[in-house]
């Protein structure tokens, strides 16, 4: 199931909390990169959290500190997270290439200064359009700058490639 389908405007799930500088070698270890994306995703984060992929349920949210996704340009990093069921990534800030890759794949990447205060296992609800996150466990609300509508549309389509395909399909019908 595509975890970020048409319901992507609201995302609700458990937080999986990580620290600063989680790099792409941790998210998508290079030694598994000759596998299919699904098989690769079983090893996501395993250097620092063995069993991560098995724990994630569709709708869950990865929350991290500063500089999430540093290192390689490998799109297998956000792709693996998406395949585990992670439906959004929230961090204080992202490394440049990861940020673009995530959004291009239809995985919302949200910058939130208060990421540090989220605890592992917190029940989070993200309203992408409105620009806020409700932490049901801590009964707190955080605001973030909502993504531009164009990017939200891309996320709802399932990413840039899927969006291009839809457009092409519509053009053909016309």
């Amino acid at each position: 199931m595509n975890a970020v389908g048409l319901n992507a405007v609201v995302i609700r799930g458990r937080a999986h909390k990580f620290g600063d500088n989680i790099n792409t070698d941790i998210i998508s270890p290079v030694k598994y990169m000759d596998l299919s994306p699904e098989a690769m995703s079983e090893h996501a984060m395993e250097a620092i959290d063995p069993g991560f992929a098995a724990k994630v349920k569709p709708g869950d949210i990865l929350v991290a500190g500063q500089n999430f996704g540093s290192g390689s340009s490998r799109e297998t990093a956000p792709l693996s997270l998406k395949h585990t069921g992670i439906s959004a990534v929230v961090a204080v800030f992202f490394a440049r290439i990861f940020y673009r890759n995530a959004i291009n794949l239809g995985l919302p990447a949200l910058e939130l200064a208060e990421s540090e205060s989220v605890r592992d296992g917190d029940d989070l609800e993200i309203r992408l359009l409105d620009g806020w996150i409700h932490n049901h466990t801590q009964n707190r609300q955080y605001a973030f700058s909502p993504m531009p509508l164009k990017l939200l549309q891309m996320i709802q389509a399932g990413g840039l490639a899927a969006q291009l395909e839809q457009r092409l399909h519509i053009d053909k019908i016309k």
Binding site: S72, S73, R74, E75, I97, R100, N101, N104, L105, G159, L160, A161
Partner: peptide
């Protein structure tokens, strides 16, 4: 500069 796969597709 480095880019991801989907960007390269574009």
């Amino acid at each position: 500069t480095g880019i991801g796969s989907t960007e390269m597709l574009g």
